[in-house]
Amino acid sequence: MSLDDKRIVGISIGDINGIGSEIILKTFEDSRMLEFCTPVIFASVKIMTFFKKHFDIDINFHGIDKIEDLLPKKINVLNVWKEQVDVAFGEENEIGGKYALKSLQAAVAALKSKNIDALVTAPINKTNIQSDNFKFPGHTDYLAQELGGESLMLLVSENLRVGLLTDHVAVKDVVKNINRERIDKKINTIYRTLIEDFGIEKPRIAVLGINPHAGDKGVIGEEDDTILRPALDNIRSNGKMVFGPYAADSFFGSGNHKNFDAILASYHDQGLIPFKTLAFGKGVNFTAGLNRIRTSPDHGTAFDLAGKNAANFESFREAVYSAISIFERRVEYNEISRNPLQINRKRGYSKKK
């Protein structure tokens, strides 16, 4: 679905007690954003009006009860609910989780039915959103169930891209979740997204080791030699430029990450600590590998800042830009795939790395 060539970006509101509402409003307070997309916020006009008044933001909404009524060049708010909801900034409570899920479910339904072109999710609280309808450690796993494809959490900031071999997994369970099948799937997913979503013709991918110093030839663990290296050797034999495993402790500090189009970390903090150190507040979380586009800011609900009019909205704005950009690149890639003769007339896929 598209209006006046403006991509329709759906926005789930996240936890109403967090900073989601503030970063959404501050992003679209700048009317120039409407030159890039037509936003539709899945919430209610009542609650968005409350947030608008609380943060004293000069912004107008176009309220709708069905998505077919949205208007271009307007900030559309689709009424997922109409009842009055009590907001308690900074509190982790059942209400915050309940309405975060209502918003997310409605937005994902619109994404699946192609009534929106891409989805940007404001932060949820992973504890209070748990229910009979949501038993996942975060957005990524929920979207993997709802949308087709092999999901991969990919953190993006300009030319820095960090993917995760295992994401929301307890440290004690990391090794038992790493096997040849998972490595193959994650490498294939990151390789494909670099080509289709980022326009990189011949991706170079670095993989970080599981153990300190990538095991030091078995002195600090055997998994790098028995699991990771054989899997990477096999992938390389099929023509992909995949390198490693690298010792994670010096990889970013030495600047080695600049030599690659993406880095695959073995577990959550191994990848996210250096990423957020280098790009916090400017990074975007992209769920790669799905048949639809979803991005989010690189931070959480920030209950300590909620309601104080002090939240930085730059990461959320970048998530909107990225959602549009990735969608456009994927459309272009699919057009080229259907008609290879267009390749010399398109930008981004004929250039060598």
Rank of each mutant, 00 (worst) to 15 (best):
E223Q: 12
L70N: 03
R192K: 15
A247E: 03
G148S: 13
G253R: 06
N177T: 04
N179I: 06
I195V: 14
G215N: 06
N344C: 00
K217I: 00
A262W: 03
A122Q: 01
P203Q: 11
E223W: 04
M1S: 14
R229V: 15
T38L: 08
F243I: 06
L264T: 03
K53I: 03
H168C: 09
L152P: 00
P274S: 06
E91Q: 14
S296A: 14
K74W: 02
R7D: 04
I227K: 06
Q270W: 01
K53W: 00
L25I: 07
N344M: 07
A100S: 14
K346L: 01
I67D: 12
H139D: 04
V77Q: 11
A100M: 08
D269L: 08
F303C: 09
L208K: 08
G10Y: 03
G215F: 04
F50H: 12
D117E: 14
V242H: 11
F243C: 08
I324V: 15
D86T: 15
N159T: 12
M33Y: 10
Q342D: 02
V162L: 06
P245Y: 08
K46C: 01
V87H: 13
L272C: 10
K352E: 14
G289Q: 03
G307F: 08
K46H: 11
I273D: 01
K308M: 11
T166I: 02
H213F: 01
H168A: 13
N125Q: 09
W81D: 06
D4L: 10
N344T: 06
I24T: 08
D30F: 03
V169P: 04
I67K: 12
L194A: 08
A43F: 08
D56S: 14
F260R: 07
K353E: 13
D197P: 02
S237E: 15
T27A: 10
F275M: 11
K276W: 08
E150L: 00
L208P: 03
I324N: 08
K282W: 00
I11A: 05
V284A: 08
I75L: 15
S157N: 14
G148T: 06
G10M: 03
E196S: 13
G253Y: 03
L143E: 02
F243S: 13
E314S: 13
L264V: 13
L278N: 02
L101R: 13
F136A: 04
A310K: 15
G10A: 05
K351P: 00
E196Y: 03
